[in-house]
Structure formats: C-alpha cells, structure tokens
C-alpha cells in the first residue's frame, strides 16, 4: 500500500504528465466537455418534464417510476449499443451520460415542486396568478434548492461515469484508468481516480455555490431558521 502511494506521488510529480496533447490539462478539458455538455442537455430535457408533472400533478406516478427504471439502465451496455449503431464518434458517450443524468433531475425537480406549500400555491391561484405565473413566479423559485440538489447529484454521477469514454478510445481522465489497467500500472489508475474524484467534488462545490446564489433570500432565511 505504501509503495503504491509513493508510486502515485511520483506519477503526479512527473512534470511532463501535465502538458501536451496527452497531458492532464488536455484530459481535464475533454472530461469537462463530456460531463458538462451531457449535464446541460439532460437539464434541458429533464427540467421541463419535472416542472410539468409537478405543476399539473398529472403523470407523476408514471414519470417517477420511469425515472427509477431509467436508473437501472447499465451505462456500459448503452455506450456499447449506441457505439455498434453509430460507429466511432462521441454519440455513445453523450447518449449514455444524458440518459444517466435525466432520471435524477426529473425526480428531484418533481420532489421540489411537490414540496411547495399547498397553501402558498392556493393563495397564488386565489390571488389571480394564471398557470404560467404560478409556475414561474412561485413554484420554480421555491423548488430551486431541490432542483439544484438533483443537478449536483447528476453531475457527480456523470463525471464519474464519463470514464467510459476512454473505453471506446476517446479521452478524458478515463484514459488513465483504462491505460493503467491495460499496462498493469496501478499508480496510473489511482492517479486517474483521484483526478476524477477531485473534479467531481470541485464541480459539486461550484454548483452548491450556484445553488446558494439561485435560492431566493427569503427561502434561505426560512430554511436556516427551521434547521435551528
């Protein structure tokens, strides 16, 4: 174990490791590209679905069960299947990661909408806000914390799973994991795993900052008080 740690430290200390077309910086950019693009697309698909079922209350049972069913989709299988259909390009990676991220965002968006106080929604309608106004002025702002929880969970999973891109010969930090495995170089696998974990945690922290910024002040104060 100690030996492995020393090897990993040496692996990171190697100056040539960081720059160039195979360097950590390049791999980071690739990994970010796969993860962020997939997450953004997943949000664009999942958010409206979650908002719609949350607002209307219709199709909730169906959507939530479909979402939990979607969680069972084996990512490796999806990547390989799309690869066999589309050939050697990035589609398999994007499809698999988007499919991975959608269920958790739909579920959390719906949960956020469902958690909006019934009295508040009732008062909003009773005051004369129409459907869209209730959705965008009342429900969406109040659901922001839970929606962002979903996005954060999705990003962590997507970043970890984007490793798979290397299996079909693309880049990202997954390169180190697969190459290290093939070359029986555990230090390289370890290094790759650390880089991926650090990236996931960094993005999670960044998003928690965004979450705080997007959470309406009145709501944040209220939550702080009720947590006391």
């Amino acid at each position: 174990m100690g030996e492995l740690i020393a090897d990993v430290v040496r692996w990171f200390a190697d100056a040539t490791r960081w720059s160039g077309p195979e360097g950590v910086v390049q791999r980071l950019l690739e990994h970010l590209q796969y993860s962020l693009l997939s997450t953004v697309v997943a949000v664009l698909i999942a958010l409206p679905i979650g908002l719609l079922i949350g607002h209307t209350g219709k199709g909730a049972f169906f959507a939530i069960n479909l979402a939990s069913f979607g969680r069972a989709l084996p990512t490796v299988g999806v990547v390989i299947l799309v690869f066999l259909v589309s050939g050697l390009n990035l589609w398999p990676v994007y499809v698999a990661l988007v499919v991975l991220a959608i269920p958790v965002i739909v579920t959390n968006t719906y949960a956020g909408m469902a958690a909006v106080d019934h009295d508040v929604r009732d008062a909003a309608r009773g005051t004369g806000l129409n459907g869209w106004q209730v959705l965008f002025q009342i429900e969406l702002p109040l659901a922001v914390p839970l929606i962002m929880n979903g996005v954060r969970l999705a990003v962590v999973q997507v970043v970890a799973t984007a490793t798979i891109a290397a299996y079909i010969s693309f880049g990202g930090f997954g390169r180190y994991v697969f190459d290290g495995f093939a070359q029986n170089d555990l230090a390289q696998v370890f290094g790759g795993a650390v880089l991926i974990a650090v990236l996931a945690i960094a993005l999670d922290l960044a998003l928690s900052g965004l979450q705080r910024a997007l959470t309406p002040r009145g709501l944040a104060l209220q939550r702080r008080r009720s947590n006391r």
């Binding site: 799973t161 798979i164 994991v177 696998v189 974990a197 996931a200």
Partner: peptide
C-alpha cells in the same frame, strides 16, 4: 459521499491487489 465520486471501474481495479 467522497467514495461515491470515484469511478466504479477505478475502484474495482484498485481493489485488485
């Protein structure tokens, strides 16, 4: 939570020794 961020494949490989 941190263990969850490690890619599953990497975890399997690191358990190999």
């Amino acid at each position: 939570g941190v263990l969850f961020t490690i890619p599953s494949l990497a975890l399997f490989i690191l358990l190999l020794p």
